[in-house]
Amino acid sequence: MSMTTKLVASLCGAAATLIVGGGLASATPDTNAIVNSTCSYPQVMAALNAQDPAVAAKVSSNPLATAWLQQLVAAPPPQRQVMVDQAAGVPEVQQYSGLIGQVATSCNNY
C-alpha cells in the first residue's frame, strides 16, 4: 500500500470515527453513537474543531476524508454500521479514541 493510500485510509478512518462513542481501542467498540447520531456534518466538524483544530484541519483539507464523512453522516443507520465496522479495521484510528469520544458527546451542542 502506498504512503498516500495509507494516509487517505487513516484520514478516512479517523473521519469515520469522529462521531463514534469512545472505546475504539477496546475489544468491543460501542458504535451506537455513530449509528444513531443526529449530528450533521457541520456539527461534527464544529465539535472536532473545538476539540482538536489540527485534526479538524487534516480532515477538512482532504477531499476524500471530507466526502467520506459527509456520506457517513447522511447514511441510514444500517449503512453507517457497515462503514464504521470497516473503519474500525484501520489501526491508525485507535489513536483518536479519546478525541472521538469527546466529539461524540459534544457534537449536538453545535
Score class of each variant (00 low, 15 high):
residue 76 P to F: 11
residue 10 S to A: 15
residue 57 A to D: 15
residue 47 A to D: 11
residue 104 A to P: 00
residue 97 S to K: 08
residue 77 P to K: 00
residue 14 A to L: 12
residue 72 L to M: 11
residue 89 G to S: 07
residue 73 V to Q: 02
residue 13 G to N: 07
residue 57 A to E: 14
residue 24 L to I: 12
residue 34 I to L: 12
residue 92 E to D: 11
residue 107 C to D: 13
residue 42 P to T: 07
residue 24 L to E: 08
residue 14 A to W: 05
residue 20 V to H: 10
residue 67 A to C: 04
residue 30 D to N: 14
residue 44 V to G: 00
residue 101 G to S: 03
residue 17 T to H: 15
residue 70 Q to S: 09
residue 79 Q to E: 06
residue 94 Q to R: 12
residue 68 W to A: 15
residue 32 N to Y: 08
residue 66 T to W: 02
residue 107 C to K: 01
residue 72 L to G: 02
residue 90 V to M: 01
residue 12 C to S: 12
residue 13 G to Q: 04
residue 48 L to S: 06
residue 89 G to W: 01
residue 91 P to Q: 04
residue 96 Y to P: 00
residue 25 A to F: 10
residue 21 G to R: 09
residue 3 M to I: 12
residue 25 A to G: 15
residue 109 N to L: 14
residue 80 R to C: 04
residue 25 A to I: 11
residue 76 P to L: 11
residue 89 G to R: 10
residue 102 Q to N: 13
residue 107 C to S: 09
residue 76 P to N: 07
residue 73 V to Y: 03
residue 57 A to V: 09
residue 81 Q to P: 00
residue 51 Q to I: 10
residue 34 I to A: 14
residue 30 D to P: 03
residue 28 T to P: 03
residue 105 T to Q: 13
residue 75 A to P: 00
residue 78 P to L: 02
residue 99 L to P: 05
residue 28 T to N: 15
residue 63 P to I: 04
residue 46 A to K: 06
residue 71 Q to P: 00
residue 61 S to V: 05
residue 102 Q to F: 05
residue 17 T to F: 13
residue 48 L to T: 06
residue 99 L to R: 07
residue 65 A to S: 09
residue 13 G to H: 03
residue 50 A to H: 09
residue 15 A to Y: 03
residue 61 S to E: 09
residue 62 N to A: 10
residue 65 A to P: 02
residue 25 A to M: 14
residue 108 N to T: 15
residue 45 M to A: 10
residue 84 V to M: 04
residue 3 M to F: 11
residue 51 Q to C: 13
residue 31 T to I: 15
residue 22 G to I: 10
residue 81 Q to K: 10
residue 88 A to G: 00
residue 17 T to E: 12
residue 76 P to C: 04
residue 68 W to K: 08
residue 18 L to F: 10
residue 43 Q to W: 06
residue 22 G to F: 14
residue 57 A to W: 06
residue 22 G to K: 12
residue 72 L to Q: 05
residue 58 K to P: 03
residue 29 P to D: 05
residue 72 L to Y: 05
residue 35 V to Y: 04
residue 3 M to K: 14
residue 52 D to R: 04
residue 5 T to V: 14
residue 20 V to F: 03
residue 4 T to I: 08
residue 11 L to E: 06
residue 96 Y to A: 01
residue 93 V to T: 11
residue 68 W to F: 15
residue 40 S to L: 12
residue 110 Y to V: 10
residue 28 T to Y: 10
residue 54 A to P: 03
residue 92 E to L: 00
residue 8 V to Q: 09
residue 62 N to R: 03
residue 60 S to I: 07
residue 49 N to D: 15
residue 70 Q to D: 09
residue 78 P to K: 01
residue 94 Q to N: 06
residue 45 M to V: 15
residue 105 T to E: 14
residue 40 S to G: 08
residue 33 A to V: 07
residue 13 G to E: 05
